[in-house]
Simulated scan of single mutants.
Amino acid sequence: MVILPSSFKNSPRYLNEYTQDAFTYVRKYGRPDLFITFTCNPTWTEIKEEMMIGQKPMDRHDIVARVFRIKVQKLVALLT
C-alpha cells in the first residue's frame, strides 16, 4: 500500500487539502459573487512576439505564464 503526500498533485490528500483551502476562503471572505474561468491561448500575439525562431510555447513556459498573469491582472483591474 502506498500513501501519497499532499504535495503529490491530484492525489486524494492534495485534493482534500485544496478543498479545505477553498472552504477557508469562503469562511473568511464570504461566498463569491462572481466566478470567472480564464484560459491561456498559446497563439496570442504577445507570446508569439517573444519566441525565438523555432521555439514553441511549450518550450518557454515562463513567457506563457508571464503573459497570462498580465492579462489576468488587466481583467481584474477592469472588474474593480
Rank of each mutant, 00 (worst) to 15 (best):
M52W: 03
N16E: 11
Q20Y: 01
E17L: 08
A22Y: 05
P5C: 03
V64A: 04
C40S: 13
S11C: 06
Y29I: 00
S11F: 03
M58L: 01
L4M: 09
S11M: 07
K56I: 04
K48V: 04
A77R: 12
R13W: 10
A22R: 14
T19K: 10
D21K: 08
D62G: 06
A65V: 03
K56W: 07
E46R: 13
K74H: 11
K28T: 14
Y18D: 06
I36D: 12
M52G: 05
A65S: 13
A77C: 07
I53V: 09
N10D: 14
T39E: 13
P32R: 04
F8I: 05
Y14D: 09
V72G: 03
F68Q: 15
I63V: 11
T37F: 06
L34V: 13
T39N: 14
C40D: 11
V26E: 10
N41F: 03
T43S: 10
W44D: 14
V67A: 03
Q20M: 06
K74L: 08
K9H: 08
M1P: 08
R27H: 09
F38N: 12
Y14A: 03
L78P: 00
W44V: 04
V76G: 03
I47W: 06
V67K: 01
F8R: 14
I63H: 09
V26G: 08
V67I: 13
V76C: 05
V72S: 09
G30A: 05
A77E: 12
V26F: 11
A65D: 15
R60T: 03
K56E: 11
F23W: 08
T19A: 09
W44R: 05
T43I: 01
N16K: 12
F35W: 10
T24P: 00
L75I: 06
I63N: 06
A77I: 02
T45Q: 15
N10M: 10
D21E: 13
D62A: 00
K28C: 04
M51S: 02
R27I: 05
P5L: 02
N41D: 15
P5M: 03
F68N: 15
F68R: 15
F8D: 11
T37R: 11
Y18W: 09
D33V: 02
I63S: 01
V72E: 12
L75M: 14
I53P: 01
F23H: 12
D21L: 04
R13D: 11
T80D: 12
E46F: 01
R13P: 00
Y25M: 00
L4D: 05
L34F: 07
T24A: 03
M1K: 14
V2Y: 10
T37N: 08
N41C: 08
N16T: 06
K71Y: 06
Y14P: 03
T37V: 05
D21Q: 11
G54M: 02
K48E: 14
K56P: 00
